[in-house]
Design a protein around this nucleic acid. Sequence first.
DNA 1: TGGGCGCGTGGGAGCGCTCCCAGTTGTGAT
DNA 2: ATCACAACTGGGAGCGCTCCCACGCGCCCA
Lengths: 345, 345
Amino acid sequence: MAVTRRGMGRDGRPTLEQVAARAGVGRGTVSRVINGSPRVSERTRAAVQQAIADLGYVPHRAARALAANRSDAIALVVPEAETRLFAEPYFSGIIRGVSAELADTDIQLLLTLIRTPKERQRFSQYAASHRVDGVLLVSVHGDDPMPDQLAEMGIPVVMNGRRSSDELVPHVDCDNVGGAQLAVEHLLGRGRSTVATITGPSDMYVARCRVDGYKEALRAAGREPDEDLIAKGDFSEESGHAAMHKLMRRRPELDAVFCASDLMAIGARRALRELGRSVPGDVALVGFDDSSLARHMDPALTSVRQPMEGMGRAMTRALLAEIGDSGPDRPRLVLPTELVRRGSS
Amino acid sequence: MAVTRRGMGRDGRPTLEQVAARAGVGRGTVSRVINGSPRVSERTRAAVQQAIADLGYVPHRAARALAANRSDAIALVVPEAETRLFAEPYFSGIIRGVSAELADTDIQLLLTLIRTPKERQRFSQYAASHRVDGVLLVSVHGDDPMPDQLAEMGIPVVMNGRRSSDELVPHVDCDNVGGAQLAVEHLLGRGRSTVATITGPSDMYVARCRVDGYKEALRAAGREPDEDLIAKGDFSEESGHAAMHKLMRRRPELDAVFCASDLMAIGARRALRELGRSVPGDVALVGFDDSSLARHMDPALTSVRQPMEGMGRAMTRALLAEIGDSGPDRPRLVLPTELVRRGSS
DNA sequence: TGGGCGCGTGGGAGCGCTCCCAGTTGTGAT
DNA sequence: ATCACAACTGGGAGCGCTCCCACGCGCCCA
């Protein structure tokens, strides 16, 4: 019976076998057509494609996955906390990019939010058992071992951002140093003479990059960075507020501030208002991220834009390449950032 | 050979068969333990569980899906446009809720962004071939046939929001009418006498609900709604700006505005500033959505909050219930909204 | 004219599970 | 002790696909 079975699938949908019968060929041939094997004559291919169209055949994912030992799915792993903080445009931008790149591959996107170490553990197990073909990691912290773990287990991984300058795991990052330079050069170009900065937490590589860019831009303009003009924040609005007050106490004459995040720029703006300083009249302000908050500030905030969607796409392309030929090339991309000029500078 | 095969899986991971061998039982019994069947003695269950732990066994999803004819995955379908507009907190809030509810079910979340009719078509096909167990639909437009299509095909569906007051497809909505009432009552309670509103597009049910709430609150306070005090917008900032100007031209004496979205409130705020009216001194403002923009306005915007995460959770629970017992109950939940009071009113 | 050779092709053997039907055991009633 | 019955348990038969081996055929070279 099994040998000559030609019935529909359980759910009333046609199976490979049916398509084969209709096209007057064997199962193997249909499979070859579907998977684009070149070892099929043009005549046969056409006949099979016709049968597929007639029957409205759609391959059964699970059966395919089981037989071929792959899942045709990749996971996007996001620490839960990030969905709050960077909700927009970071999170949705990445997703849009990934999704766009996946659109014509019939690979599925599995979204995994991780909120506890337990869930983290569980996900590793998942990935380990080849339930996904590859993993996209987003906003990985400096001390996170997961990327290395996955990589060691032979699971294709691509991260967004890196944990250090000598990151070994394949990743796609944006040019944080360059973005910061752009911002500072712009401020200098507008005739500002005393440019301060409010930084992110120093244990985050991305934050260090932005400080580096700040310093480099100053040096390139022939001025030595002054530690008094560098105040530490943690990317939050409150920290930006506090840092701005500290800065004004230390250097009341400053006339420009580069903030490593839009949120901190908002805090800084508030502090300046409290001190009766106008923006951009007394002090020019530049942020980082180009969030919607920046657009809606008053005056609107000049900000460094990261190509979030582009990063999502690039990550996906890199991952697919890794899954595909598993070549030894470990992609490390750095995408350019861009300065969006608005009223605050 | 096949009968007594006891080897590892292809990827070096243990299979059901191995677990059975180790526990000294048959495959069927292990399967029963894994699937929580009650028809297993306590002794046997313990032995099997021990074997599972020893081997670090994880069931193979694809094999399971194939044999059991289910996928253990649900899809969250989002029109691409929405990820831009409502990026925050709408999109990420829903996702967080869904993900939280799924956390201990080992059902996977498949994220599908739809940008073209072609992709829409493709997704329907997917769903039709039982590649997912159920579908979560987000921000469905009034004329979208997809919910009905899916429902007719026997695919469990739950929508967020509804297309009309007599929506037949199972859905979870928030109390838009009630939220609007809350807002207007609050304004009235603060002694405002002439309360206007800026509405969303009238072809969206959600927008009509908010107008209804506005009118009802006025009537409850013994005043007849005045069409001059109702200006139409489309949820965008620009439309809010235009509507506010129109309103002030028609009724210069108004002293409060309920905006059907935060974005429109921002536009309205700008218009008021242009006209030299203070907020909340001259005109009190209330928005809808409680986005981060509201928190960062100056003064911060009073706004109606929708329980996004709660809606995500409720949708997921409803969908799982539908998948589970496929009972004839078509859940229609309406979650309460809440007024977040800030400086603008 | 015969023996390769390779392209196309058919279909058996599985992938790792679940389902279900027997079979085996233990229990209580007769 | 005997039988009926329930509670458990084992394992065959697939799920729909891919992989790969073997086979048939036409072609080229000797």
